[in-house]
Amino acid sequence: MISFVNVTKRYPDGFEALKNVAFTIHSGELVLVAGHSGAGKSTMLKLIAAIERPTYGNILVSDQNVNALKKSMIPFLRRSLGLIFQDQKILYDRNVFANVMLPLQIRGFQNKTAAGRVRAALDKVGLLRKENAYPITLSGGEKQRLCIARAVVHRPSILIADEPTANLDVDYAQSIMEVFRSFHQVGVTVVIATHDTALLNDNRYRILTLNQGKLVV
């Protein structure tokens, strides 16, 4: 469960990215966050992962108050999440397998157990054949799949994706969405920020729309 209680985020330069936003996403939901660039989508996702801290208000993630978290506890909050970043944040100095291995490495997994999980995650996104490839050789869609594999390899209960289908052609975007849907079907809470109109016209999902930092009801 993710809950925003009257959250305002003002950046040091005075820009208010979110203004008094309140909503609740229940566990197991798939929610799309819509709005044009600069509407506050990314800020919202960063607040969930404690990458940014709110100026006012409270944020609850899986019954933890994110504001009250000590700095030393933030890593453990992030471990309960699967994050897919707008700028991907892939490490280009290592192959696909090693990139997906990272979340398990920081948890101190034994290499054998970890390798099985990495292959399972790669299989799920259809990248198993490319495990030894270097990210530079991957297409845009494949890179996005790599990011998804890295976000789910540790089996988080919440998956958060920032513009996962941006810059992908329609077919690719749809297959990426299929992957998210499959996680949603096994009970993972999925939050996707997007301005992809094709996606937003699909009325199967709840949509939170942001406009200039305010939630449009």
């Binding site: 990458i51 992030r78 471990r79 970043f85 944040k89 100095d93 990272l102 979340p103 920081i106 948890r107």
Partner: peptide, 16 residues
């Protein structure tokens, strides 16, 4: 720098 930033984002502790 890149590696440190990424592993911080996915939940690496400072001591790790």
């Amino acid at each position: 720098r890149d590696e440190i930033e990424v592993i911080k984002l996915i939940g690496a502790t400072d001591s790790f």
